[in-house]
Design a protein around this nucleic acid. Structure first.
Lengths: 243, 243
DNA sequence: GAGTGGTCTAGACCACAGA
DNA sequence: CTGTGGTCTAGACCACTCT
């Protein structure tokens, strides 16, 4: 078990095991949805007791990297609609009920050079290419969200030629491009709707919108998606639980 | 160890221990900031092994109820400014730097009967009394947040007579009223500034504001504060980390 | 040095899923 | 029935804090 800077050889065994497991997920040895070896087997292979392996797995479960099923095994997390809904989507209606958009109206999807802002957010070189998606998302049959998504073209080669982009993107990134979104940072502000948004969502001029500015990262902490969603919050609100 | 409905006698031992510890925190046996007995001592008292007690404590630490200090002991969490800042305050400036308001301008603080909405949010009877606080909070020497706070008068007796209400309320609730805020649910929307807010914060008429509607609860899940903060998000934004 | 939490082991039994 | 994770024990040693 050879480690560089991040984990010195004298780090606790369970942390070394965590790092090793993360490495195997990142390099694809254990891909999303796959079952890991049992706790006892892992312990034998790594020269650790079952209890120590268990401690490492416990941590990774609480970091949403793994999921356990009693009697079946321990699996690498996948982006199911469930996960998308409960983890990455925060708009609820006025009764507090969460509902994923079932319909998205694609406005544009094209490949072009990154703007300065886009390159900065995605840590790309100045003249790199990106794919830009613009769409209007519907909730309860009403247009509510006007969304622009920026992706690095090198990682998502050919995506702009797909004319059937699914509503639920993170599962699509995972299955088609092998890119797992693990973490996202959102910045929220109140803005005034632009003319485009007024038309797309059907609002009075000057209406306030909730802007959600999200950068999503892979397991390795690399930013791979920048998404700006502008939401009509008359019938919905953004739910944030502080526990 | 007698349990009613919530935890049948055949529940795992560590869950029974968790419940017992929570009970002792709620009833004040172990108040915020106090040290718990050591793991081995707790194990002896409860007839469990140190490992099982540890598992219960681990859970409670991850739920922010306890905090460990190696070599010193395990303590009940308190509302320090740190906790307030990192856990319950989410506005950051445009460089992503978080800064607690250092100055609040008190506009009003009075006792009156609850409106229908207020009674509903705080689960009070129809004609109960509340204390209403209105204040403007400053960030970087600028007025940014216009805030209204509603508290049940029975739990916060006499608070309206205090003319030196601190900026950092949750520590004050804890030390003065023995009320520990443990969880909060926030709903965010974009709204248009009212005339009052335009004047208080100094904005053009019709400016968009970010409205944060928060209900805060005790450990027992009882709502004890309803707070509506309307924020100018030109120089700040609400940070939400999704991990 | 005494007492605390932090790590690790080895082994036991239970609860659950699936062939 | 077998293999998996879930719970629990008893004991060991390390790392840290305080006196």
């Amino acid at each position: 078990m050879e480690d560089k800077h991040p984990l010195p050889g004298n780090a606790p065994l369970y942390k070394q095991i965590k790092k090793l497991i993360i490495g195997r997920i990142v390099d694809g040895t254990w891909s999303p949805g796959k079952r890991l070896p049992s706790e006892t087997r892992l312990g034998q292979e790594l020269g650790a007791s079952q209890g120590t392996v268990r401690k490492a797995l416990d941590d990774l479960v609480s970091e949403n990297l793994l999921i356990r099923h009693q009697g079946r095994g321990t699996f690498v997390t996948t982006h199911t609609a469930q996960r998308e809904l409960f983890h990455f989507f925060h708009l609820v209606d006025n009764d507090g009920i969460k509902q994923l958009p079932v319909y998205s109206q694609l406005i544009d999807c094209s490949r072009r050079r990154a703007t300065r802002d886009e390159a900065g957010r995605l840590k790309l070189s100045a003249r790199a290419f990106v794919i830009a998606i613009t769409r209007v998302r519907h909730l309860n049959n009403n247009p509510v969200i006007c969304e622009t998504i920026i992706l690095p073209a090198t990682r998502f080669a050919g995506l702009e030629q797909n004319d059937d982009i699914p509503n639920e993107l993170y599962g699509y990134y995972e299955s088609t491009y092998g890119i797992t979104i693990h973490k996202a940072t959102e910045r929220l502000r109140a803005v005034t709707a632009s003319n485009v948004e007024v038309a797309a969502i059907g609002l009075p001029v000057g209406s306030p919108l909730l802007e959600i500015d999200r950068v999503a990262e892979t397991l390795e902490g690399e930013p791979v998606e920048w998404r700006v969603s502008r939401c009509d919050t008359q019938a919905h609100s953004y739910l944030s639980e502080i526990i």
